[in-house]
Structure formats: structure tokens, C-alpha cells
Simulated assay, not measured.
Amino acid sequence: MIEPFANNHQSMQIGELVIENQEDKIIIYGDVELTLDASGYQQAQQLHKLTTEIMQAFQTRDFSRDIPHNLYSNNEVKSKENDDQSGKNIDNPFL
């Protein structure tokens, strides 16, 4: 299990669902099939634990007084700093 927003190097997988941890965001992509059997139950438990820990991370930072202004404006700057894209327009090499 990852520790939400604690570092930039943890990741985990539930089924084909990939969860990447960063200090300013958590990236989730892929899919997971929750089948009505023991495997589906285990995956559902992992999802529940993960979302509970993410919500606890938000609650410990008490964003209730910051919403909506600081929550979005602060993360926007941090996310752009960590983005792989330079923000510059480049020529399409396929044209």
C-alpha cells in the first residue's frame, strides 16, 4: 500500500488499475474488474483501504477552509512544475 502524497516514487497495482504516488497528486489509470468472488472481494478491500487513506491525507491537511481557491491554485503550480511537457508548441513531425 502506498502512503498518499508522501513521496514521488511509490506505485501499486490492483488488477490492471495502476496508482502512482506523488507529493502533490495521485495518478490512477487502467481498469479493474471486481468479480463476485474471493479475488474481487480482496481487490475491493484494497480499493477501500486506498481511498480511505487518501481521504485521511486530505483531512489531516484541513482543506475545508481553503476550498476552492487554495486547493486548486496551489496544486496547479506544483503539477505544472512536475509535468513532462514543456508547454512549448512544436511542429508536428507527421505532417
Results as ranks from 00 to 15, higher is better:
1 M>Q: 14
1 M>E: 12
2 I>W: 00
2 I>Y: 00
2 I>C: 03
3 E>T: 14
4 P>L: 08
5 F>Y: 14
6 A>K: 10
7 N>W: 07
7 N>T: 06
7 N>C: 04
8 N>R: 05
9 H>D: 15
10 Q>K: 06
10 Q>H: 02
11 S>V: 00
12 M>T: 08
15 G>S: 04
16 E>A: 10
16 E>I: 05
17 L>S: 01
17 L>Y: 11
17 L>W: 09
18 V>W: 04
19 I>K: 05
21 N>R: 05
22 Q>V: 01
22 Q>L: 07
24 D>E: 06
24 D>C: 01
24 D>F: 02
25 K>D: 04
25 K>Q: 03
25 K>Y: 12
25 K>L: 11
27 I>M: 07
27 I>E: 14
27 I>S: 13
28 I>A: 08
28 I>R: 03
29 Y>S: 14
30 G>T: 13
30 G>Q: 04
30 G>P: 11
30 G>D: 08
31 D>M: 07
31 D>T: 14
31 D>Q: 06
33 E>V: 09
34 L>P: 02
35 T>N: 09
35 T>E: 15
36 L>A: 12
37 D>K: 00
37 D>C: 02
38 A>N: 10
38 A>I: 10
39 S>I: 03
40 G>M: 08
40 G>Q: 04
40 G>K: 00
40 G>E: 04
41 Y>Q: 06
41 Y>S: 02
41 Y>W: 04
41 Y>A: 06
42 Q>K: 12
42 Q>T: 11
42 Q>F: 09
43 Q>W: 05
43 Q>Y: 03
43 Q>C: 00
44 A>D: 05
44 A>Y: 14
44 A>N: 08
46 Q>N: 08
46 Q>H: 12
46 Q>D: 11
47 L>N: 05
47 L>C: 10
48 H>I: 01
49 K>G: 03
49 K>V: 11
49 K>Y: 01
49 K>L: 14
51 T>Y: 15
51 T>K: 09
51 T>E: 12
52 T>N: 12
53 E>K: 11
54 I>A: 03
54 I>T: 00
55 M>L: 04
57 A>Q: 08
57 A>F: 01
58 F>C: 12
58 F>M: 05
58 F>E: 05
60 T>E: 15
61 R>G: 03
61 R>V: 05
64 S>T: 04
66 D>F: 03
66 D>Q: 07
69 H>A: 15
70 N>Y: 14
71 L>A: 03
71 L>F: 01
72 Y>F: 10
73 S>F: 04
73 S>P: 00
73 S>E: 13
74 N>L: 06
75 N>P: 00
76 E>Q: 12
77 V>M: 01
77 V>A: 06
77 V>N: 00
78 K>E: 03
78 K>V: 00
78 K>M: 06
80 K>L: 02
80 K>W: 04
81 E>H: 06
82 N>R: 11
82 N>P: 04
82 N>I: 00
82 N>M: 15
82 N>T: 12
83 D>C: 11
83 D>W: 05
83 D>Y: 03
84 D>Q: 12
85 Q>G: 08
85 Q>I: 02
86 S>D: 07
88 K>E: 11
89 N>W: 13
90 I>S: 09
90 I>Y: 09
92 N>Q: 05
92 N>T: 01
93 P>N: 02
94 F>K: 13
94 F>L: 10
95 L>C: 00
95 L>N: 14
95 L>E: 15
